[in-house]
Structure formats: C-alpha cells, structure tokens
Design a protein around this nucleic acid. Structure first.
Lengths: 184, 184, 184, 184
DNA sequence: TATGAATGAGTCTTCATTCAT
DNA sequence: TATGAATGAAGACTCATTCAT
C-alpha cells in the first residue's frame, strides 16, 4: 500500500476511536509508520484528511450502488431489502459507523464539510424519495416520510447496535415488512 | 440567574455551535461574563461540565414525562403521538439537537460519558418496547423494531431537518400512521 | 487553641509534608478548619507564614537552652552530650527535621529569609566555637572545625536517619567520643 | 552543545538560583534560547528534568571516582583526604551545592526522586563504611558513625560555607586529623 | 519523496489574594 | 473577627505546521 493509503487507513482507525479532534497528526504518523513531515506531502492540512475520511462515512456511499441501478426492482419490498443489505454491508466496517456520527458532530465547526454533508444528505433523500414514489402512487410527502423513516431506523440501528440483541437480518426484515405494510 | 446557571447556559450554546473540543474554557467564561478561576469553583474540569450538558441532550430526557405516565394512553396512536410531541417540544431547543450528536460522537473518547449514554439508551429502548408491547399482543421483537424505528425516524428528522420542507407536525402524523398501520 | 495557632499547626504539618511551594493556602485553611479570608486576617501573606515557621526549624532553636547555660559544663564530653541531647529532643518532632531542609532550600528564593537564616547560622557557629575554645586551649580554628563537624554530623543523622539502623543514643555517644578523642 | 545539553545547563543554573518549583519551564527555555515546544521534545515533563539534574547533585557522584578505586589507599588519612578533595572538586560548581539541598527538600514531594535519593544515600554510606572498616579493625558501627560524621561535616561546610572564613583546604586537613585521631 | 527537530500560539488548570457581606 | 465567591495572572503542557537536510 502506498504512503497516502497508509495514512488514510491509520487515520480512519484512529478517528473512529478518538474522534477527529482528539487524534493528533502525531498519532496518525506513528500508526502509519511514517515521519511527521511526510504527512504534509500528502495532505495540506489535517482538515483536508478529515474531509476525505468524512466523505467515506456518509450513508450516501452506502446506498450508491443500489441507487445507480435504476428501475431494477419490481416490488417495494425488494427495493428496501436491497437498500438495507447494501447499507449493512457498507457499515460492516465498524469504524465507519462511529465515523458517521463524528461527521455529524464536527460538520458544525467546518463549513466546507457541512456543505458537502448537506448536499449528499439532500441528494440521498431526493433520490430515495423519487424511487419510492414509484411504489406509492405519487404521494411525495408520504414517500419522503417513509424513506426518511427507513433511513432513520437503519441509522438508529447502527447507533444503538450495542443496546439490543436483534440481529441485523431480522431487524431489516421486520423493518421492511413494517414500512411496506405501513405504506399500503 | 446564579453563576453556575450562567456557565451552563453559555456552555450549552457554545458546545452546540462548535462542539465540545473546539469550545475553550475561555470561550465559556467570556460568554458567561465571569473570570476564568470562577469556572473551576463550579466545575472541577471542563469534562465535568461536558457530562452535565451531555445528559441534557439525551433523548431519554425528551420522553421522560410521557414514559412516567403509566397506562395513560388507550390507543397506540395516542401513545406514539404523545411521545412524538414530547420529543419535538423538548428538542425545540435547537442547540439540544446538535448537542445530541456531539454526545454520540464524543462518548467514544470519554469512558464515563459512554457509560451514562449506553445506560440511558438501553433504558429508553427497554421501557419504550415494554409500553409498545401492550399494543402488539406481546411480540417483543416486533415491538422493539417498531420502537427503535419510531425513535430513529424522529432522530433522523432532527438530524436532517435542514434538508427537507415537511413540517414537524406533518412528519409526525405520517410517521405515526405508518407505524400503526405497519404493526397492524 | 486560637485561630492563629491552628493555622501554624496545620501549616507546619503540611509544609513538612509537601514543601512550602506545593502547599496551598487552600490546603492550610482546610486543615485548620477556617475560611480562606480568615487566613489573611492573621498573616498578611503566605510568605509571612513561611518565615514564621522557618524560624522554628532552625538548629539554633535546638541548642538555645544549652547555649544560654553559660559555663555549666565542666568537661567537653558533658557539653557535647548536652548539646546532642537537646538537639535530638528538639528534632524529635519529625516535621521540624524536614522543615529545616526546606528552609535551606527556599532561602535562596526569599531574601529576607536568607538574611535571618545566615544570621542565626553565624551566631550559632560563633557561640558554639567560643564555648568549645574553653576545652581546646584557645585554638580557634580547631574549635570551629570541631563544632561544625559535630553539628554537621547531627544534621546528617537527621537527614539520613532512614538509611541506617544505629540508634540516636548510640550515634551520639560514639560521635562525642570521637570528637573528644580527636581534639585531645 | 546540543539542545538537550543547553536545556540542562540552563536549568541547572536556574534551579540552583530559584529552586525547582520557582523556576518555570518558560524561564528555562528563555535561558536556553529555545522554543517552549522544543523543551518537551527532550523531556517528557519538568519533573523528568528535575530528576536528571537531581542525580547530578547527589554526594554519591562526588565520591564515585574515589570509591571505584578499590584498595588504592594505604593509610586512613590518605583515603579521607582523597574523598574530601574529590568532594570539594565536584562541588566547586557552586550551583551543585545548593542543588543538593533543593533535592533533599523536594524529595518528600516527588516519590520517584525520593526513591533515587534514598538508594544513592544508602549505597554511599554502605560503601563508605565498608572501606573505613579496613582501617578500624572491623568495628562496623564505629566505622559508620565516622563515615557519616565525615560526610556530614563536609556537607555542613557546603551549607554554611558563607558563614565562616576557614578555607576548604584547612577545613579538610583539620577534619581528617580529627577523624583519624578520633578513631585511633 | 522522506525525515524529524524546532516552533509558538493556544489550552486547561492552579492559586495567592481581595472584598462585599 | 469570620466568611467564601470571585478574580486573573501565571504555569505546565499540547499540537498543527514548517523547513533544513
């Protein structure tokens, strides 16, 4: 792996563990096995690295493959199931889970990050809602609430994972059932 | 308002705006209109203050009044509606919304905070699930998924509030409808 | 005991334990059971208190009763023995032992304390030498070396007390013997 | 001289002048002509530096060259004379004199320093006593009192140097005479 | 590209002292 | 006399960033 990759790998691990602000450039270069100066050959500042890693943690990334597949799903059930599976697969990297919350937290303090975040968030809701409308005969608001509820439930699973014993598979199945039925 | 109260008020504002780590004790005392030393008469460290304010931001607090009302609701719809209204009223203080995400983010770095957080989180899910079971004839897992989905949707509304145009009232109504129908 | 006495008692204890600089006025008032402001009714500053307690720890104090007894001892042996016993009795208060070294250490930083210290030290050597000269037929330098050696040996016992197993009584007896014989 | 050496040199000077606690890291870096951060590249804390400098001030160091010379001295007189000369030469650096008393004073407040101090102190007495026993036909206690008296007298000279007019050379000669005669 | 010693502004925390009650 | 909240200057330590090699 090249130097840049080693920095990113080390930083992802450390950022997840201690948050962006409590991880020092020293921590990162030590973990990456490089010298301090080398870091600045690859990133102009710590904030640049934060932005790059923050992008990786956005839910948008978790869904992108499914959302690119236009019109591939006949039933609402299959679509939601595919979204959910894609989501859980992406976030099987535990570090990305907590990183997402670090991003939500720090975006208030880093304007450019907030801009990126809000854009990806809006795009995801817009796209998700559009796709759901195919299944709920055109009620946009109903579709939006449904999509955001679906997304919120998945995110809440990530966040409260440690507080329960329901498996991902079962959680997703029941969630999909409930949404489908609820939208009927 | 007494000195302690002024510290908490100023800190809540600043923590929400910049996060815990990027808010300095200097910022806080300046905003509270007190001297630096005075801060340490009331809190043994910045971390103590973070803990106190973190507690305020937990969803548990937003529901406590409703959850204390045992058996007050006849229909599932009324119960969820009451929970949702209590939630939105509590989080009408915009600072508390982002503070909650700051807490989720920083808890990884502050063990005692993580402990508090996980306890309140578990208690909330346990209590919410128990109350829902009265309405879904005893299927515990189904009730848990429903409660967590409900909670997740509300939290997601907080978090993505700025990305949409659906009003709280309408969002809540549609959410309750969907959950009720979904659990039928 | 009056307030002033309680302050001194508490301070002596704490100063011995942690040194002058690492003992805070807070420590002292807490130990004395009084309020912070009360301290400054009795001492104009912490330094004033340090000076007062520093005086108590000077070896001059340990010998004063014996040295006041002019011409009371017929034999050199008896004189030295009396000095030694007076010394060990005075410094049976363990706190005073370490306090003496604290004084030697801090006097460099507090001019008025250095002045007091040097005066008492000179007076002690002058007086001790004068008294010894009665026993060594007038050789002043010999007497001075002997007195300072005697004093140094006693101080070294205080200071390295914990590193040995010889009892005070035995140490003193052997020391007196050696000096007497050495001056013969 | 390298940076570390410049720190030590500056600190030795300042510690002697104002004591450990009243010398700030700022004082040291200013005197050493380096930046604040640089200090912490070379010492993990001010206490680490104190420890290193404290070692230098211990009498053990003053005697080490003589004590390493096993069996090099035929007469007690020569041995003591060599010890004394080594002592005075080592402590011709006036800063080391007062530093020694700073160490004695502060060791109560710094456990790791106390440990080092007590170890070096015990070793010195043990070794010195052992060497003296060759000259006093095996009476261990007598030898120990003699060695500690010799050491105490030298230390007392350091400490009360300013209060007298006897030269080092003369003081040492008379001291050796007295001890030799006293042990006869 | 890579290194790592050096920098200095910034952060948390302490503590002697004051003063209104 | 006694109180204790308030003060703010000062101290130890951190850390993102630079630069000569």
């Amino acid at each position: 792996m090249n130097t840049r990759g080693r920095i990113i790998k080390a930083a992802k691990r450390l950022f997840a563990e201690k948050g962006f602000d409590r991880t020092t450039v020293d921590d990162i270069v030590r973990a990456a096995g490089i010298a301090k100066g080398t870091f600045y050959l690859h990133f102009s500042s710590k904030e640049e690295l934060i932005k790059e890693i923050a992008m990786m943690a956005m839910p948008f990334m978790a869904f992108s493959s499914v959302l690119r597949n236009t019109n591939a799903y006949e039933r609402l059930e299959d679509f939601l199931q595919a979204l959910g599976e894609s989501f859980f697969e992406y976030y099987s990297d535990i570090d990305l889970r907590i990183l997402f919350f670090h991003v939500v937290s720090i975006k208030e303090a880093i304007p450019s990050l907030k801009e990126i975040h809000n854009r990806l968030c809006s795009e995801l809701i817009a796209e998700g809602t559009k796709r759901l409308m195919q299944f709920v005969d055109g009620d946009k608001k109903k579709a939006e609430v449904a999509f955001r509820t679906f997304l919120g439930s998945l995110l809440h699973y990530l966040y409260s994972g440690g507080c329960s014993t329901i498996s991902q598979r079962e959680y997703l199945r029941k969630l999909v059932q409930m949404i489908v039925k609820g939208l009927d």
